[in-house]
Design a binder for these strands. Sequence first.
DNA 1: TTTATATTAATGAGCGTTAATTAACAAGAT
DNA 2: ATCTTGTTAATTAACGCTCATTAATATAAA
Lengths: 169, 169
Amino acid sequence: MRNIAEAVNITTPALYNHFKNKQSLYLAAISDTFENKSELLLQALSGQEKPLLRLHRFITQLSQVLHDDPDFHRLMQRELLDGDEERLRYLAQEIFGASFQQMMELLVELNPDCDAHSLAVIIIGMVQKPYELNPLDRFFPDSRQQHNNPAYISGQVMAVLSTYLGDTV
Amino acid sequence: MRNIAEAVNITTPALYNHFKNKQSLYLAAISDTFENKSELLLQALSGQEKPLLRLHRFITQLSQVLHDDPDFHRLMQRELLDGDEERLRYLAQEIFGASFQQMMELLVELNPDCDAHSLAVIIIGMVQKPYELNPLDRFFPDSRQQHNNPAYISGQVMAVLSTYLGDTV
DNA sequence: TTTATATTAATGAGCGTTAATTAACAAGAT
DNA sequence: ATCTTGTTAATTAACGCTCATTAATATAAA
């Protein structure tokens, strides 16, 4: 609370005129960070274009979001580690529910026999992990600039996926 | 410190007969949790068998480790979020360096043209993300038991990968 | 005049840590 | 065998600091 107050140039108790307590300020921060992202992702998945194109658009969008807003990524990770049941439900249902559903339907279109749920999770992992491992990356061999580039990452992910999904279209 | 002391049935100051301070206790906990895992993963990658088989063994082993030792997974995530430079270097070099190197060499064997570094990260993401999203999973549609089963997860991951890597062997 | 928003000062709880002391036990000297 | 000594590991009590939060009060705008 002291850090936040300092960052917005007021004293700590003045924060309590705007938020009931630390918890409610945190929830407001989470909501503000998450809510506009979910719409971006849903839009990328929707449309009348060919499924593989929409998948590509989603992967690129997710990669871009993770790259452009590190706070979003960090808050997400922190919630997964420490979020209580109520916050996790909020995240799963209000924030990512619609996108996840849409994603699964898209995957079934591409491959009716696949386990869409499992595949969706795997794809999210492919895109997100490069950013998650980013703090470690400079200590790994063969670390290069492009490994943190959204376009490059989504290209790599699509290369792997399109051989698996492309044949079934 | 109070919680740990209570868990081991001594008083808090007695802990300081065993560890200099909280930081050193934490480092000891991390080392103990991480060090034997890295050897398991390296073993799975090594050997004279066909590359695709070794990859499968690695993915299964990683999946198994993440499933069997949730503390390992949680500590890893926490270090990625909050680890200082020294601890991240330790993790990248001492713990996962050899496995990562071996993994890259294996991927080059499978596809000499691929970006092994990028691909290695993506594969780790495919395996790890199901466990990372596990707390969220029960709020998602189509949530099933098997999505937390190591054998099932590694099967799904291999299904995606083998079409991409298998053709190039 | 009321409402919103800021301030200074203080409170109470929790934290890591240290001080001072004691009990248990092993090793060497008598 | 007993006594001395040193080490290890436990205890109770307390310290100093940080934290979120509240009380009491002031200021500015509607």
